[in-house]
């Protein structure tokens, strides 16, 4: 599980950044300060624009340092079921390398590399044609309409055919798909997904939501590629921590309706430039069956 002790004592960025206040200041209620992100769950931060969702996600995923304390193992931060394997000496970089994977709001694909290289640097054992071909085949087994399958296969085939080219001319959605594939093929226990379906059409959104959900129990179609590397053993259950304004499923179907969905936390934050007004950030947890 991921346990994050927060908020912090000092401002994140003195004079301009955000300040996370303690939700409960009393020491005897310290346990309430611990944000637990357990394996087998998807966590989504929701809240108004500019409230600090991405910043919080970046802090949790070690992409941004903050002035407060972060501790590894035995103190405040524990990584899922792999906590035994995480050593005190492991640096944040090693934790990122071994346990974390990322999907960003923007694709953040490296344009000066080829598509193949973008994937291969994270999983040197990947064979683009074979492995993505395999994924393409697996799409046939998904419980979606045939035209959606064709559409997904087309997108994958385009990535395969363009593998030796720069991703520069891929569309925004295609880049986002590539970014998603990149995150999924990297061996990880936690995926941080900052609105991963931004600029995606409805069919790709559904595909990503479905695969992220399956990732929690390693049932996703990318599992086999992840397994190709000996870098890290896959755990039984994974975690997804993300940001979402409003979920596709809430509106259009009841995909998660039969799952444990509840408000888990309400985090009180405030901006420095508006001290009098508290902003609230909701954390929603979706559990596996």
């Amino acid at each position: 599980m991921i346990q994050i002790y927060f908020p912090v004592k000092k401002s994140f960025r003195e004079g301009e950044g955000l300040v996370y206040e303690k939700a409960v200041k009393q020491k005897n209620k310290q346990e309430k300060d611990i944000l637990e992100l357990r394996p087998g769950y998807i966590y989504y931060f929701q809240g108004k624009n500019g409230i600090g969702k991405t910043t919080l996600l970046n802090i949790i995923s070690f992409l941004t340092d903050f002035d407060g304390s972060t501790y590894i193992n035995g103190d405040k931060i524990v990584i899922g079921q792999t906590d035994e394997s995480v050593k005190k000496t492991d640096s944040k970089n090693e934790i990122r390398s071994q346990y974390f994977s990322y999907i960003f709001q923007d694709p953040h694909i490296i344009n000066i590399y080829t598509i193949k290289e973008n994937l291969r640097i994270l999983n040197p054992n990947i064979d683009i044609e074979d492995d993505l071909g395999f994924i393409s085949d697996k799409i046939s087994e998904l419980d979606i309409e045939e035209k959606e399958k064709d559409y997904l296969r087309d997108k994958l085939n385009k990535i395969i055919s363009e593998k030796d080219n720069s991703p520069f001319y891929l569309s925004g959605g295609e880049k986002q798909l590539l970014s998603f594939i990149r995150a999924m093929i990297k061996p990880s226990n936690v995926i941080f997904a900052d609105e991963p379906w931004a600029s995606m059409d409805i069919m790709l959104k559904e595909f990503i939501e479905e695969e992220l959900y399956k990732y929690l129990t390693n049932d996703d179609i990318f599992k086999q590629i992840r397994n190709k590397t000996k870098k890290n053993k896959l755990t039984q259950k994974n975690t997804v921590v993300g940001i979402a304004h409003k979920f596709h499923h809430e509106k259009e179907d009841d995909r998660y309706g039969n799952k444990d969905v509840k408000w888990h936390h309400k985090i009180s934050i405030k901006k420095l430039n508006s001290r009098r007004k508290n902003h609230h950030l909701n954390l929603t947890r979706y559990a596996t069956n």
Partner: peptide, 16 residues
């Protein structure tokens, strides 16, 4: 020009 590249590499665990 390469901040982005270096950032992505570091994000995915490439050490300094």
């Amino acid at each position: 020009l390469e901040f982005h590249t270096i950032g992505v590499l570091k994000c995915f665990g490439f050490a300094n």
